[in-house]
Computed example of a mutant assay.
Amino acid sequence: MTKTNDPFIDIRPYNDDEIPAAIDRLVNDEEFIGAILQHRFSNHAGWFKALMSPIVKIYLRMKWSKLDSVETIQLEVKKYLDRTLNTTTRGVTYSGLDKLDKESAYLFVSNHRDIAMDPALVNYGLFQGQHKTVRIAIGDNLLKKPCATELMRLNKSFIVKRSAKGPREMMKALGTLSGYIKHSLDTGHSIWIAQKEGRAKDGNDFTDPAILKMFHVEGRKQKVPFADYIKSLKIVPVSISYENDPCDIAKALELWEKAEHGSYEKGEFEDIESIIQGIVGDKGRVHVAFGDVIEDTFETPDALAEEIDRQIHHNYKLFPINQLAAGDEQVADDVKQSLKDKLMQLPESAQPYLIASYANPVNNQP
């Protein structure tokens, strides 16, 4: 088993030898089994679900018995992703992958529109291009249930402790996170992390310099200047564009609610609902653009953030709905109808938020 003196044991993904025990914990997690039964047999009576519970556990034990390594889990996820992309997109395209060295580890800093699909699409492209898949940064705000933590850590996700309280605990969490990112890159494992905390619900993709400062916490410990340390990380900006955002109405309503009432109260299962909607909802065409490795000298997090933003905006693939939202009427009638149908689902005063979410990528183009 894994040694307990591992400084990253609380946040890192599971190693191959830890997978059987994690799967066993999942199968015995009543909340997890309950969620499956609720999803699969939502119209059935409670007694029927209780009857099905041991059968579901036996089925999962059999189905997952062959999942004994990170690789076998990723291949299983890929099968599911193949089906999902076939039914929920009109094709996924990639650019910039040919510039990346298959033997190198990169720190992919990406715009963030969808909780689960963004890193999944990056991984999908890397896998198809015979590159190694990434370790995925995920906020602990999405891991309130133990079963969610198990599932994510089984699939190469590591935990960003946003809920750390107090300066000392926060600094410790940042130091561990920064050290883990450097350790991963140094041992040949690429990283995916969003350019800021939370999704860009307004379509404005801008990097939070605080994340770039976090990268350097380990560098400060090693007494390496910011500019030199950043070069060693091989940062690659990534732009992900969806022709249709399955969560666009929910995002617009949230922004409207915040503007109207000064705050927005998130429902207990809202994050989970967003994840499911993002996976099963129609995405239209999707494009993932890998930018250039950042090799120039940037002395400050702000200057580096500007370069990441420049690449993300420049490489963002615009679709006709973006052009229409930004005021260009020279688009097909079905695109106009599609935007109109979306707006009809919102109160009139909330409609500008949805329009802005599709227009902002056009406005941000350099």
Score class of each variant (00 low, 15 high):
residue 256 W to K: 01
residue 29 D to R: 02
residue 281 G to E: 05
residue 267 G to Y: 03
residue 50 A to S: 14
residue 29 D to I: 08
residue 85 L to C: 05
residue 357 S to I: 12
residue 200 A to T: 06
residue 299 E to A: 12
residue 299 E to N: 13
residue 149 T to H: 02
residue 51 L to Q: 01
residue 103 E to T: 14
residue 36 I to V: 13
residue 155 N to W: 01
residue 265 E to F: 04
residue 221 K to I: 09
residue 157 S to D: 04
residue 133 T to G: 06
residue 2 T to F: 06
residue 22 A to W: 09
residue 112 H to E: 06
residue 364 N to K: 13
residue 245 D to W: 03
residue 68 D to R: 15
residue 144 K to R: 13
residue 222 Q to Y: 02
residue 164 A to E: 00
residue 180 Y to D: 03
residue 129 G to R: 07
residue 179 G to C: 04
residue 2 T to R: 12
residue 332 A to R: 03
residue 206 F to G: 01
residue 360 N to E: 05
residue 240 I to P: 08
residue 305 A to I: 02
residue 141 N to C: 08
residue 42 S to Y: 01
residue 360 N to F: 00
residue 265 E to C: 02
residue 328 D to G: 03
residue 213 K to R: 13
residue 53 S to K: 12
residue 202 D to W: 14
residue 295 E to T: 15
residue 19 I to S: 10
residue 150 E to Y: 13
residue 148 A to V: 00
residue 279 I to H: 02
residue 48 F to K: 06
residue 305 A to L: 07
residue 124 Y to L: 04
residue 131 H to D: 02
residue 68 D to F: 03
residue 76 E to A: 14
residue 295 E to I: 10
residue 306 E to N: 06
residue 269 F to E: 13
residue 135 R to S: 14
residue 326 A to R: 09
residue 251 K to A: 02
residue 255 L to G: 06
residue 157 S to C: 15
residue 301 P to G: 04
residue 366 P to Y: 11
residue 352 P to G: 03
residue 72 T to S: 15
residue 360 N to W: 00
residue 308 I to P: 10
residue 59 Y to W: 13
residue 152 M to S: 09
residue 297 T to E: 15
residue 55 I to N: 05
